[in-house]
């Protein structure tokens, strides 16, 4: 179907990925992930001491906090945090560290509407969390969770097949008839996992779906097609993550990009120090 996107991308093209290991000082692992301008920063601390009320005798307590770029975190941040906890738990072996706390804090670096997180931003948060967990290296993991956003556009003509696009930008998600985010857990040797076309990626299983359509159709295949597109996107993200891991500790801390993010943070100095402060504030409040 001939559908042109505003920025000229193909239906299955993502925006350029940014994977940066922040190397924040006070936490065990941290990373920044971005689809083009849609970015999120995550930090992981664990296993650390847990307060008595939250202690669990057989596994580590996994606590997730999500903060939007501006205004107080409301119910949508709480919902995304709960979803993150649910979808990352299958990838972590929490029973290895009982009576401890694993704390994940995700900070969105992109403005979003108050009522909800657009699917690409949610996907960026999930990918940043996975990167931060890999960077920390202190929690045993069974696999890596990668996510991608998908949007659906229906044509005004009588074309039967609507267009599914990968990695919608904020404006595209607003105008789309339907959009959603799919997260997949990539791990080897699982019975019943979906076979993928390329041989070097392990089996993937769907761990999170958040798909909304305004005027739905009775076409069962639509959801499956969207899922497949999401899987293709998640797979390329997985490969990009795999490529970045060997260089995790070699990369110097990156200079702050000279674009809008600097203006948002307000300071143009060492990126570490600035986000360090934000992270610490987030930790103390918890």
């Amino acid at each position: 179907m001939s559908f042109t996107r505003p920025d000229g991308r193909g239906n299955e093209d993502k925006r350029p990925l940014h994977i940066i290991y922040e190397r924040l000082d006070r936490v065990d692992g941290s990373a920044r992930f971005g689809f083009g301008d849609t970015k999120a920063l995550a930090s992981v601390s664990g296993p650390i001491e847990v307060r008595l009320a939250a202690e669990q005798p057989s596994k580590a307590t996994f606590d997730v906090t999500v903060r939007p770029l501006s205004s107080l975190p409301g119910t949508e941040s709480k919902a995304l945090a709960t979803s993150l906890r649910g979808l990352l738990s299958p990838s972590l072996i929490l029973s290895r560290n009982p009576r401890t706390l694993l704390q994940l804090v995700v900070q969105s670096l992109t403005p979003s509407p108050i009522e909800s997180y657009p699917p690409s931003l949610a996907a960026a948060c999930i990918n940043a969390s996975s990167l931060a967990l890999l960077n920390a290296g202190s929690i045993p993991m069974t696999g890596v969770v990668c996510a991608a956003g998908v949007a659906l556009f229906r044509s005004t003509t009588e074309e039967d097949i609507p267009a599914l696009v990968l990695d919608p930008s904020e404006s595209e998600s607003r105008e789309a008839v339907g959009c959603g985010c799919f997260a997949f857990l990539f791990r080897t040797e699982i019975a019943g996992s979906q076979p993928l076309p390329t041989n070097d990626t392990p089996g993937a299983r769907l761990v999170w779906t958040n798909w909304h359509v305004k005027d739905g159709t009775s076409d069962d295949g639509e959801l499956a097609r969207a899922q497949a597109l999401g899987l293709a996107g998640a797979e390329t993200i997985w490969r990009a993550i795999k490529q970045s891991v060997p260089q995790m500790d070699n990369l110097p801390p990156p200079p702050l990009p000279s674009r809008s993010t600097a203006g948002e943070l307000g300071i143009i100095t060492q990126s570490d120090e600035v986000s360090d402060q934000d992270m610490n504030d987030a930790k103390i409040e918890i």
């Binding site: 205004s71 107080l72 975190p73 409301g74 119910t75």
Partner: peptide, 9 residues
Amino acid sequence: GFDRRRVNG
């Protein structure tokens, strides 16, 4: 005001 534990109008 803004009640951060509820959906706000």
